[in-house]
Design a protein around this nucleic acid. Sequence first.
DNA 1: CGAAAACTTGATTAGCATCAAACCAGGTGG
DNA 2: CCACCTGGTTTGATGCTAATCAAGTTTTCG
Lengths: 246, 246
Amino acid sequence: MIPLYEHSAAASTVYNPQARVCIQCGVRRLALFGVLDPAALENIHYRVPDLRFEPGQPLFAANAPGTSAFTVREGVVRLERGNERGGRRIVRLAGPGDLIGMEAMLGQTYAADALACTPVKVCRLPRVLLDELSGAQPQLLRDMMKRWQAALDEADEWLTELSVGSARWRMLRLLLKLSEFGQPDGQVWLPSRQEMGSMLGMTVETASRLVSALKREGVLDTPDVRHAVLQMPALMAALKTAAQGD
Amino acid sequence: MIPLYEHSAAASTVYNPQARVCIQCGVRRLALFGVLDPAALENIHYRVPDLRFEPGQPLFAANAPGTSAFTVREGVVRLERGNERGGRRIVRLAGPGDLIGMEAMLGQTYAADALACTPVKVCRLPRVLLDELSGAQPQLLRDMMKRWQAALDEADEWLTELSVGSARWRMLRLLLKLSEFGQPDGQVWLPSRQEMGSMLGMTVETASRLVSALKREGVLDTPDVRHAVLQMPALMAALKTAAQGD
DNA sequence: CGAAAACTTGATTAGCATCAAACCAGGTGG
DNA sequence: CCACCTGGTTTGATGCTAATCAAGTTTTCG
């Protein structure tokens, strides 16, 4: 029933069925609890519910008092914030292996809205669980800190690569970033024009024009409105010329 | 000799002279080691050298293998990153009480260049010191994590408030942010036009024009090229109308 | 004092926002 | 099944904002 079982055919040890969910999980090595051994997982898996969200559904809301962080197992989640002028800006994207809502682990309210961009599967990590484990597993705190630093790097990258330069440059950089979340079949999730605008600080119209232009240039192909196939060589070439341009 | 002594006249306990440096430090309650008691400080102060930097001097460089974080005690430090197009962008400012270069505590290289904007006084916190202390003082790790989260919030604020909207709006927001680092006499550090441009993603010329306009409007006064006196009511009013504008 | 750097101001232009109108896909109800 | 509506997308025409190019002016510093 639980979607994770789809990879569990090769189960070999005596861990109970639910623990296999964690052990077999495709992102475990990437995830927060990746540092734990199977025996430790055995004791906690039942306290880490896995959840699913459909596109547009909120995982959590800014300023809400949260008690859990989330490990993204599948799909893409966006973190967005309102600004003082009433607009909204997407400040980060999270994909498989990423941990979001870490601030809940500090007893703080969530700093941003988290919304599913695609169908999403996540594991919910309650704060109390982390508190308990961190005593016995000091590795875990270190891993948490690394994740904070990674999130910070990510934020800085948005500032340096996705917030300055010509609209065309920023769009190309976004496509490059989206390729990180690509499916094995070469398809990448293509955000709505609205979402693109909110990530890159431009209007829907401009985003649409740029995507159309890139399609004409063969950088991009859209078998489906919400999916794209990127021609990476063409993309890299376009980036190179866009860099000269300004 | 050491500048910190300037506040130590009221020393009352038997801690040695150097320990008083920390105990009396104006930002101790804000700083990382603020959670430590005086007795603990006694044992570590001599391993926390205090340093000074002049405007333009680097505290550390991106990608350099660092062994220390820094607590800013006085002045303003900017963190900047090069982008793929060869430009540079200032991604954050750090003032008294802020901790920068935390990534060194994880054994990572620095993620950005840190440069003094004003005369700066900092305390250098070696990684080994934190490693030792964190065993006995679990509070410390928690405090570190809070600081990471705070840095992340800060980065998100730059994305939402300083990277989108009209040039005028962004400049006004920058002035508001700079007021956080204001001196007791009401003066705030005014960045060079170049620096403003690098923070707000605009050219020097545009930055200059906007500052000039705000001076004419009485939002701003510049007794000295590098300092400003802000008329907060006028600033807030200008922000309000700039928000309507777009 | 003179040179270099930073800042200011003006004129022109390019790029993107804005306004407006089609276009298209997916869903609903007759 | 089709007509219709709705929300997202695309495309076009126009205007404004900020970049660019180009002098000046002021400040800094050797």
